[in-house]
Every structure is written in C-alpha cells, then in structure tokens.
Amino acid sequence: MNDRILDFSIKYGFLILLFGLIIFFSLATNGFSSPRSAVFVLQSVAITGILALGVTCTLVVDGFDLSIGAVATSALMLSAYSMVILEQSALVAVLLCLFMGALVGMINGLLIVRFRVPDLLATLGMMFLLIGLQRIPTQGNSIATGMSLGNGVAAEGTFSKAFLWIGRHRFDLVLERLVPMPVVIFLVIAILIWLFLGFTRHGRMMYAIGSNERAAELVGVKVNNYKIAAYMISGVTASIGGILLAARLGRGDIASGNNLLLDSVAAALIGFAVLGAARPNAFGTAIGALFVGILLQGMTMMNAPYYTQDFVKGAVLVAALVFTFYLSSRRTGSGH
C-alpha cells in the first residue's frame, strides 16, 4: 500500500503540483487564467525551453553542455553583425547562426570524444571562448543601426522585416494576434525532440549510451558519432534560441541572455521529476520550463518582488531533484 502511494507520488506528484499551482494562481489573482496570460507564460519560457531541449539531448548521452548560453548570445551578436554591419539578408543571418551553432556543437563533441576532455570542462572552455569572441568584432559594444564604426562612418544596415517577423509575429488563435512565433517554434522543436528521443532508434541508442556506454559500444553502436550529434543538436537549438532573442530585441544587445544557461539547465533537470522518468526527457524538459514560467508569472501577478525569482527557481529545482533521486532510489531499493 505504502509502495503504491510512493509510486503514485513519484509518477504524478509533479504534475499534480503544477495543476495545483495553476488553480491557486487563478483563484488568488485576477486574470491569471486567461488566454493572454497563458500565452505570456509560454512566451516567457520559449527561448529557455528551446535551449533546455538541446541540453536534454546532451544529458541523454550522459554529457553536459555548459556552452548553450554563450552559443545563444553569440548567435544574437552574429545575426546583428551580419545584418547591421555586413548588410546581409535575414536568410543569410539565420543560416550563418545555425551553421555557427552546429560548428560549435561539433567542436564540443570532438573535444570530448577525440581529445578526451571531460564534458563539463570542454563546454566550460567553449563558453568562455564564445563570450569573449562575440565581443571582439565590435570592441565590446552592442550592435544597432547607426552605430559608429570608427573613422566617422555609421553602420547603415538594419534588422530586416523578415528577421523581426521571426521574433515578433503573432498568429491569430481564438483571439486576434494571440500566439507569438517563438512559442510556435518552441512547440515544434519540443515535438521534434520528443519524437526523436522517445520513438526513433537513434534516440533509443543515445539513451543506451548514456546508461552504459561500454555495453553500447560492444554491440556495435557508433558511440562517438552519437555523442557528437548530441552536442550538435544542442548547439543548433541554442543558436535558434539566440536568433529568436535577436529578433525580439531588434538589436545586438551585449548584455542580454545572461540567465539563459542556468534557467535552461534548471528546466532540463526539473524534467527528470516529471512522470517519474528519473532520466532526461523532452516532455519533462518542456513541462519543467513551463513550471518555472507559471510560477514566476503567478508570483509577479501577486506582486512578489522581482528579486525573489531566483530564490523560487532554486527552491523548485532542489525539490525536483529530491523528488527524482531520493524517492526513486527508495523505490528501486537501496542497491544490491
């Protein structure tokens, strides 16, 4: 009997908590349970959610990618640089960013599988490298139309309409101009990664690698290729996040995106607790991102001061980790 309660709470505890929160905020505040508010929550978590889905792939192969935040801000600066200073089209800017993300992911993967650098260290190094690199072309300045390029010349290029559309367009759904483009992209990526990890043989082999790399190698799985692929997925999704951020801001802001890394890692880790998976999974990651978004939105509407936000995120993360590791270790018994 006790076991069944434990099982049930491991499996559904987190989702019940989520619904409890939604009901609580709906009753306690005015207007929390409206479509506009729901979309606002989704919008606030879209970019972190996309990054979190990428880092989930690296967690699946028992790796870790600390460079995602830096990749995203690099994409932000790169897209601004290519449009404002190089005066390229939106398409070129987007392709450049995606290519950069894939390249960084590949370098991360090669550092880890070929040069045997531990994943945390390789991606930490890459993070620093990118944070520095993205500031060099503009001597540490933000990029905006009309900025001085030295010797009296001003940057002529602008963020193209098409590019801004990616970040700012809103689709009609029930209400006019309700669903923003980044939310649509978030949902599409979430579904793609969910299908890939959960239902394709490639995803299944990545889980095998994460669980017992040696065993996967001994049945002939191309372990190194899958690991590199995981980091490339992570790099590409992070660069998509950066593109959306740039399109929303409309300028290459050097200071934005500071919280991206920690928030998205938190979402992926909270995802371990969803449905008692106790392992990285796309559905859990998406729910984890939403959970944080809902909590912050609800608290904002209840007039909680902004500086309590990080504290609340941390508390949720710790609770989720206890859920995942303590409760499920009790379920499986304390080892053999």
Partner: peptide
C-alpha cells in the same frame, strides 16, 4: 559493466543491436 543497459527494460536490452531491424524509417 559490459552488457546490461540498466535504464532499459528487457525488450530494449535484448533488441539493442538490432534496432534497425525493428524500425521503419528510423521509428521503432
């Protein structure tokens, strides 16, 4: 250490080398 994938059930452990045979267009 060399064979069991602890995260998997019996079926996935058994079919691991032959995932390609049990999938259609990559979908298992």
């Amino acid at each position: 250490s060399n064979a069991v994938i602890p995260a998997f059930d019996i079926t996935n452990n058994m079919t691991l080398p032959f995932f390609a045979k049990f999938s259609k267009g990559s979908f298992l």
